[in-house]
Every structure is written in C-alpha cells, then in structure tokens.
Design a protein around this nucleic acid. Structure first.
Length: 231
DNA sequence: TAGGCCATCTGGTCCT
DNA sequence: AGGACCAGATGGCCTA
C-alpha cells in the first residue's frame, strides 16, 4: 500500500461522463480542477496497459461507492437541525456524524421523558376519569411550559403545544421536546464546523467546546484533536 | 500561506 | 474471480 506514486491509470470517456454527472461541467473547464488533473494524466500516460480496463472499472466502482456515501451523508445533513442555505457552510462529514450521534442521544432521552410524562398523564386519567375521555385533573403545570420534561437540560416546552384548556392524552402525544431556534454564530466551532456554523438553542452541538463534560464528545473531540495535531 | 476538507486513485483484504 | 470495503497517498479548492 501507498506506493506514493499517485494514480497510475487513466480515465475513459465513461469516467468523464460519470464525473460530469457528479461534479458538473464547470469543474472540467476550471484549470487545476480534479477533472483537469485527470485529463493531464490521461494525456501523459498510455491507455494500452494490460489490466487497464479492469483498473478503470475498479476506479469507477469506487467513485460510485463514494458518491453513494456522499449522497447518504447529504441525506443525513438534510434531517439535521442546523441552518441550511447558500449562505451557511455545509457541515463537514465528521461534524455531520458527530452531530447526528448527539441528536439521536438527545431524542432518545426525550423519548424516555415523554414515556414518563405520558404514563403520569395516564395515571391521572385513571384517577380522574371524565365522560369525554379528557382529563379532569389533577392540576398540571402544563400551560406554564414548565412541565416535567422541561427539567431536561436544554429542553424547552413550547407553550402552544400544551394549552391549559386541553390536557388530553392526544395533546400529550403532540408534545415536542425541543424548539429549533437559531441563535448567533458559534465562535468556538471553527475546527469541526467552520465559523459559519449556526447553533440551535436546544440541539446538541458536535463541537468539543460545547461539551466540556460530555464523556462521548470529549473522547471524540480528543481523538480529532490528536488526529489534527499528528498531521 | 497554512490548514482543513474533499475527491480520486490505488493496493490490500475479506466475502460471496 | 469479482465485488465491496478500507485506508494511505496525492493534490486541488477554500478560508482565515
């Protein structure tokens, strides 16, 4: 592994078509682009080596594989709670993965909290049944958006979700544990996300600066730091 | 200009 | 044997 000689083989027209599809024609025209570099290789090396076709096939498969991986990564970015748009830099791959992990952890804990809340509401339902299926009591601090779930770190209960006039089980099922409101650009996340990364008030951030005490993130951040410093 | 991020090529390994 | 997966190497683009 690592012959340090760089890519030896050339691309074919099939590759060019594939590459255009992936990156657009603009890339090909740009001097110094990947496509241009590959064109240079194609010009400087012959296309008559044994196994050349095989090598092209392997390269093409690998490109497709990485392309699929990137598509999956884009799909993940789309469902992540961070600002999208042309003025906001795309999350890096590592930042996407770390944010996704934290997001899943947060949602899991929210779900557990929800289960508790629902069981509490259900217990109250048993205790104070009404004819219409709604709860008659006990008095709950729901309207003030400081219910049980809001005791979770970083959780904000939207006032509109649980109106005082409707304390039914259905209302509890519609409860949303976090509110994605963007605040200022985060100054401490240049390494992983770039300075243009925007935080959301109730969503875990993948940067180490926001998780000084988090064991998982600390470990991951330490690993990244080690990787960066060893470069 | 340095560093981060990325795409691509490539050879090795494992699996079917 | 062929394909999938992985990791190292290389070099371009972009930003601070």
């Amino acid at each position: 592994m690592g012959d340090s000689g760089g890519p030896k083989f050339l691309h074919s027209q099939m590759f060019e078509a594939f590459s255009k599809e992936l990156r657009g024609q603009q890339d090909e025209r740009r001097p110094g682009s990947r496509q241009a570099r590959q064109n240079v290789r194609a010009d400087s090396e012959g296309a008559d080596e044994d196994g050349h076709e095989l090598r092209l096939k392997v390269n093409s498969r690998e490109r497709k594989r990485m392309h699929d991986l990137n598509l999956a990564m884009d799909g993940l970015r789309e469902v992540m709670p961070y600002s999208h748009g042309p003025s906001v830099r795309k999350l890096s791959k590592i930042a996407t993965l770390m944010l996704a992990r934290n997001y899943i952890v947060m949602l899991s804990s929210s779900l557990e909290e929800m289960k508790k809340l629902v069981s509490e509401v259900y217990a109250g339902h048993q205790k104070y049944p009404t004819h219409c299926g709604q709860l008659a009591g006990p008095p709950a601090p729901l309207a003030g958006h400081h219910g049980p779930a809001s005791s979770l770190p970083g959780m904000v209960v939207p006032t509109t979700v649980l109106p005082a006039s409707n304390t039914s089980c259905l209302a509890a099922a519609n409860y949303l544990p976090f509110r994605p409101v963007a605040h200022d650009v985060h100054p401490g996340a240049p390494v992983l996300m770039g300075s243009s990364y925007r935080h959301f008030s109730d969503v875990p951030c993948p940067c180490a600066g926001c998780h000084p005490g988090g064991p998982h993130m600390t470990r991951a951040a330490a690993h990244l730091t080690a990787l960066n410093t060893n470069k």
